[in-house]
Design a protein around this nucleic acid. Structure first.
Lengths: 319, 319
DNA sequence: ATAGATGATGAAACCCGTTTCATATCAAGC
DNA sequence: GCTTGATATGAAACGGGTTTCATCATCTAT
C-alpha cells in the first residue's frame, strides 16, 4: 500500500505538502498541487484512516445506544439520526443493548478510548451518575425528558402527553382508564405515573393498581394485556397504550378475545407508527425522525441544550 | 491522558512489557505483571484505541450495508448479526443506504481505508463487478442467492420458495396467481420470475404481466396493491406476497377494499415476521436471525462459503 | 558437562498520518 | 531602500500503540 511518504517522494515534495493537499489547506502552489494530485491518481492512494484518527484525535464516529432494533419507535429515531449523520459526514456505530448493562458500558468505554466522538443514548439502564463520569471524554446526549447540566437532551413532555390523552378519554365519557407501559422503572415511568395520579385526583377518581399494565412493547404483547384484562372484575373501559405496536395488536386481536374496540374498550396509542394509520388507531404523534435529527446535531455541538418537541393528538377510530 | 510510556515509567518496565501485559502475552514475570497492573489501576489507563488500530491494522469493526432500518426483514437480520457480533467481540457500523449508491460506496471506501475489517451487504444496488474490486481490501459477504468465487454468501433458495408457495396455492385450487415484489431489478427478481414462469408452464397456465405487482415492501404499500387489483378485469384469486408487512396490510385493509381474504383473494406471505402470527397469515418462514448470525461468522472467516438455509411453509388462515 | 529449548526483557523499528515551527520568497506600502 | 504581511515549503515532533529482533538467564535432556 502506498503511504503518504511514497506519495511525497513520487511527487517530489514533502509529506507536509501532500498532507496539505489532502486536507485542502491553503498555501500550496498550483504546480505542486497538480503533481501531488497526479501521484494520488497514479497510485490510487487513500489515507489510512486509522492514522488520521490517531493524529487528529477524532473519528467522526458517533455511538448510538438503543435497546431494540426491531421496534418502530427506535427505528424511526434511528432513521432521523442516520439521515442527519449522513448530512454531517458522521458515521454511526450501533449498540443494540437489549437493556444489558455491559453493552451500554461498551459504548462509554469506546468514547473514552476515543473511538467515538460522542454517544447518543436513546434509552438506558445505566444510572445517570455513571454517565456523568464519562462526559469528560466527549458529548453524551439523551433521548429523555431530563434537563441535566451535563447532557443535552431531546424529548417530548410525557406528562403532557398523558394528561392530554387521559383528558381526551375522560371527555369521551371514560372513567375507568388504564394504561400500558414497557418498563416499570424506565426513565419516564415516574412522570407518567405522576400525570396519571394527578388526572385521577383532578377528577376524583380512585386509583386502581391493576389498571397499569407493564411489559407491553411489541405487537404480540397485546395478548398478555387482554389476558390480564380478562382477570379483572371491573376492567377499564379505555386504555392509554404507550406504543402503537401494542395498540394495534389490541385492535387486531380484539375479536379473538371477544372485545370490541372502541365499544368495550377504547384504545389510544402513542407515536403514530405506520401501523397506526393502517388500523385506524387514535394516537399521539411524536416527531421521532425530527427528534433523531436533533440528537445528532446535539452530539456534534459543544453547547448544552434541551430540545422539547410538540406532539399532536390524531383522532381516528379507536376511541 | 496517561499513555503507555508513562505507564512503563511508573511501573519501572519497558513499554514492550506493558504492551505484553495489556495483550495477555506470555513471558512476563509475575512481579512485573503486578507492577504494571497496579500502575494501570492507579492511573486509570486505557489504550488509545486508534493507536491500536493503526498498529494492528485492524479495528474489529464490521460494516453492515442495508437499505432500510424500519423493515422487519432487515431488522431481524440485523439482530442476528449484532448478537453474533457481540459474541465475537465485533462492533457494527451501520450503513442504511436507502439504496443510494454513495452510501454503499462509503462502506467500501471505509473497508479500503482499513476502518472496517469486513463488510456485510444485506441488499445492494452496486453491481457485483464493483464489489469485486474491493475484496482485496477485506472480506465482503452477501445476503443473497449467489455462489460467487469472491464472496461468501448466505441465502435461502428463492426459486424453491416461489415454487413451493405457488404449488401450494395451485393445490388449493388457484389458477390465477399473482405475486408482489419490491424491486423489479433486485438481486432475486430474476430467480423469482423464472420460478414463476416455470410454474405457469408446468401447469399450462398463461402468463399475465399484470399479475406482477412491484413497489410492495411496507404495510401501507398494500393499498396500492389493492388499487391496482381493482383495475384488472380478471384479478388473481391468490397472491404470493414477498413481505409479511404487505401481506398483513392486505389482510388488514381487505374489508375497506371490499375484498375477503382468503375467499376473494388468498394471500401467502414471506418471512414469518411477528405480524404474520398476529393476523393469522399463511407464510413462508425464513430463519432471518440465524442467517444474520451466519453472515457475521462468514465475514470473520477467511474461507469462502455459501450457506443455504431451509424455509418452512406455515399454514394459517389466509389461503 | 553441554547443547538446546524455554522464559524474560527492552531497544528500536514500524504503523501513518497531522501540525508546529522555522525559514524563504515575493509584493505592497511608506 | 526597508519594513511588513502574505504565500510557500519542509524538517521534525507528535499522536500511541505493536512487533520484531537481539540478548541473557534458566532449565532440561543427553
Amino acid at each position: 500500500m502506498t503511504n503518504i511518504k511514497d506519495l511525497a517522494k513520487r511527487a517530489g515534495v514533502s509529506v507536509t505538502t501532500v498532507s496539505r493537499v489532502l486536507n485542502q489547506h491553503p498555501y500550496v502552489s498550483e504546480a505542486k498541487r497538480i503533481k501531488v494530485e497526479r501521484a494520488i491518481e497514479e497510485t490510487g492512494y487513500l489515507q489510512n484512516i486509522n492514522a488520521v484518527h490517531l493524529s487528529k484525535g477524532k473519528t467522526n464516529l458517533i455511538g448510538v445506544v438503543l435497546p431494540f432494533l426491531d421496534h418502530p419507535y427506535f427505528a424511526q429515531v434511528l432513521i432521523g439520526i442516520s439521515e442527519q449523520a449522513k448530512e454531517k459526514g458522521q458515521t454511526l456505530v450501533l449498540f443494540p443493548t437489549n437493556y444489558e448493562i455491559e453493552k451500554e458500558q461498551q459504548a462509554l468505554r469506546m468514547l473514552r478510548q476515543k473511538q467515538l466522538d460522542g454517544v447518543i443514548i436513546c434509552s438506558r439502564v445505566l444510572p445517570l451518575s455513571v454517565l456523568e463520569d464519562y462526559v469528560q471524554y466527549g458529548p453524551i446526549v439523551l433521548l429523555e425528558q431530563r434537563q441535566s447540566e451535563q447532557f443535552s437532551s431531546v424529548f417530548v413532555d410525557h406528562k403532557e402527553i398523558f394528561t392530554r390523552a387521559l383528558e381526551y378519554l375522560y371527555k369521551q365519557g371514560h372513567r375507568d382508564i388504564g394504561y400500558t407501559i414497557y418498563r416499570r422503572n424506565g426513565t419516564h415511568s415516574n412522570v407518567r405515573d405522576e400525570a396519571y395520579r394527578a388526572f385521577l385526583e383532578r377528577h376524583q377518581l380512585s386509583f386502581n393498581p391493576d389498571y397499569c399494565f407493564d411489559g407491553a412493547l411489541y405487537l404480540e404483547d397485546s395478548k398478555a394485556v387482554f389476558e390480564k384484562l380478562k382477570t379483572l372484575n371491573r376492567p377499564p373501559t379505555a386504555l392509554l397504550v404507550t406504543s402503537d405496536q401494542v395498540a394495534a395488536g389490541l385492535v387486531i386481536h380484539a375479536e379473538a378475545f371477544n372485545v370490541s374496540v372502541p365499544k368495550t374498550c377504547a384504545v389510544i396509542g402513542l407515536n403514530d407508527e405506520p401501523i397506526a394509520k393502517a388500523v385506524n388507531l387514535t394516537t399521539v404523534r411524536i416527531p421521532l425522525k425530527a427528534m433523531g435529527e436533533k440528537l445528532l446535531d446535539q452530539v456534534l455541538s459543544s453547547e448544552r441544550e434541551h430540545a422539547s418537541f410538540d406532539v399532536i393528538l390524531i383522532e381516528r377510530q379507536t376511541v
